[in-house]
Simulated scan of single mutants.
Amino acid sequence: MTKFLISPSIVAFICALTTFAFPQIVSAKDFYRMATLGPGTTPYMVSTTFATIVNKELKDQEIQVNATGKGTQHAIEAAKGQLDFFITANIVQRLMSSGKAMYSKISTAPEMSKKLRSLFMFPAGTYHFVVYEKSGIKEIKDIKDKKVFVGPKGSAINNVVQAIIKGSTGYEAGKDYEAVETSFDAGGAAFQDQRVDVYVNITNPPSPVISQVSLTNEIRLLDLGDVSSNPELTKLYENRPGRFIATIAADAYGENQMNTSEVQTLGAYMGMATNEDVPEEDVYNMLKIFWTGLDEMKSESPWLSAISLDSVFASANMPLHLGAVKYYQEVGLEIPAELLPAN
């Protein structure tokens, strides 16, 4: 057999020529960034379900989910184009558009809020105040001098939880109880490891985090009392779109939930949002495949039963994305005039 020796320079030339003549096929898939709240929350589960359905059914788009940070910061990042999808709430948009509270030091916040667009609202669930039965904590006033997970520092949920505690007990963080302000993921882990006495979260029951604890431990959900007759609690939901009085069943978490009657608490709506620069057709296709595929997943995930087209506009105060307008008009929903975008 005859052997031919080819110089390295010729090999390099042939490789370059081949690459030039036959360019690699580049994928046209569009990647989108989504930020959500921590594991154990309904917003987290809605976000991951949305991404799972989209990634499975749409070959040209892929959503990458990140469950870190705070929803109030996510809104700023989305307005700057650093995020494509995020979780919001009526109060977040109100504060950002008016430059108040956590947005008071961001002079451009009101202008940036104009770039945000709503996709849909959903029941984020009810505020769960959960303790181990063996802790001896039977009612909300028993949390004095205890460690209470209240959500990430500076988050809207953190502010609401502390307001609920103050309204129902008069207690203040740092004075009457220790507020544990970590991520939702870390807070859930701390409760499972019994490093905090009270775990607070907003979720549609049954919450996976709480359900896991109740499999091997007796738990109790703390009742807030007669919410409607407590003026301090009433002002937390009256004239506050997106908040409402709610109850949790005495057996929502099975036989290890030691409540003997339904639990009085507060609930809230949240929403998924984007910015105006995400292509209309992509948003339309994502919403269409999400709402079409959601029913199939409800049999496997009971908490999804609360998510439906009936509440997509509930407490919304942000204009809809054009892709959302197209889809909801297509399925025959009557869109409130104030939610139609100007452009």
Results as ranks from 00 to 15, higher is better:
P152C: 02
V131K: 04
A268P: 00
K138L: 10
A109Y: 01
E172L: 14
F13H: 03
L58R: 02
I143Y: 07
T68N: 15
V331C: 05
F85H: 10
T19Y: 07
S9T: 12
Y253W: 09
V227C: 10
T234R: 15
T182P: 01
L339F: 06
P208E: 03
T203N: 14
Y44A: 08
L304V: 03
A314Q: 14
T36D: 04
A75Y: 03
Q162A: 07
Y284E: 05
V196K: 05
M258Q: 11
P23F: 07
G187T: 06
V213K: 05
A21M: 14
N55F: 01
P302T: 09
I63R: 02
M121W: 05
L222C: 04
S107P: 03
K288F: 07
S214K: 03
K147R: 14
N159S: 13
A189L: 12
L333G: 07
Q61G: 00
A179E: 14
G71R: 10
N230Q: 08
E334D: 15
P39T: 02
V312N: 09
R195N: 12
R94S: 14
V160T: 13
V11L: 14
V200S: 11
W303V: 12
M112F: 11
D223E: 11
M102W: 11
V196H: 02
L294W: 08
T42I: 00
N230R: 04
G81E: 11
L322P: 05
A163G: 14
I53C: 04
L95P: 04
L304C: 05
I202F: 08
E300G: 03
Y132R: 10
K134D: 15
Y32D: 06
V160D: 15
A109W: 00
A109T: 03
N66A: 04
I245V: 14
G254L: 02
G136C: 06
Y127Q: 10
Q82I: 00
P302G: 08
V26H: 14
D251N: 10
G170P: 13
I157H: 12
D142P: 07
I245D: 10
P302D: 12
T41W: 02
L320P: 15
I76D: 08
I6L: 08
